[in-house]
Amino acid sequence: MSAASHTQPAVPPAPTEASSRASVMTRPGAEAVKVKGWLRAHKWLLLRRVVQLGILVLFMLGPWFGLWIVKGNLSSSLTLGVLPLTDPYLLLQSVAAGQVPYKEALLGGGIVAAFYLLFGGRLFCSWVCPVNMVTDAAAWLRRRLGIKGGKVPSEYTRYWLLGLTVLASALTGSIAWEWVNPVSMLHRGLIFGFGLSWGIVLGVFLYDLLIASRGWCGHVCPMGAFYGVLNSAALIRVTADKRSGCDDCMDCFAVCPEPQVIRPALKAVAQDHPLILDKDCTSCGRCIDVCGKDVFRLTTRFDRSES
C-alpha cells in the first residue's frame, strides 16, 4: 500500500497523483481509517454484516438447534407462528402466471412491500439479501487484484429483465425467475441444502470478479430492480450535506455499488440539494464509512439541509 506517499491528500502534488489514484482504486477508505480509526471507517459495513448474518442466523436456528423463531426462507416465511412475510416479486410473477395466492401470502407480500416502499426498497439489497455479501466480496477482490476491463451491460438491463421475467411468467405459466434466481438459490441452499445451486452463486461471484465490475447487483439482477422500483420514495436516504469539504479523493465512487447515484448530490449536477434520491442507491452507507471528510450521513428524504 502506498498510503505513505499520500501525505497531503487535500492537494496531492502532481507527480504522485497517479500513484495515489491507484491506491484509491485498490484500497479506498485508507484515508478515512487514518482519520477516523478503523472501527468508525467500517461502521455501516459492520452493522450491515451483523444484520445480514443475524437474519440468516434467525433462519438457521430452526434447522440447527430446533429453535423455530422463523420458518421458511426469504421467499416466504412465518415468524413466531404469526407474522407471514412473502417476497412480493415472487408473488407478482405467480399472479402473472395466473395464480391467486392465499391471503397469508398476499398479506405477507403486502407487509414486505409496504415496509420497503416506506423505508426504501433497496434496503433489502444492502441489509438482507445474502448475495450482497457475495458480490461485495467479488468487488473487494476485484479492486485488490486490480482487475480491469471486462464487459458491463447497461444498467437498465435489470429493468428490462424485470419486465421480461414477469412476461415470461405469464407466457410459461410458472414463476420464471425462480429457475435461476441466485438469491433464493443461496438462501434456500444455506437453510435447506444446496445440491448444485452453489454453482449459480459461484457464477455470480466470478461474473462480478472477472467480467463486469458490480455487474450482477448493479446491472443484471431483476430482483434488485424490483426493489429499486420500491425504492423510488424511500424515506431513508444518504445526504452529502458536507459536500463543501469534499477533496475529490474518489473513495466514495470506488466503493459505491451504484457509483452513478453519487454525482448529482455531491457535485450538484441537475439538482441543488445534497440528497441522493436516485432509486438505485441501496442506502448501504459505505460512502459514509470511507469518506475521510465525513461528507455523507444517513437521513430522511425530507432533510435537504446543507452544512
Binding site: K71, N73, S76, T86, S94
Partner: peptide, 17 residues
C-alpha cells in the same frame, strides 16, 4: 403440476411442518 409451478414460491413451510 403446471399450476403448482406457478403457485409454489419454494418456501419450504410445508417441509417444516
Amino acid at each position: 403440476e403446471q399450476d403448482f409451478l406457478a403457485a409454489c414460491v419454494r418456501c419450504g413451510l410445508c417441509v417444516r411442518d
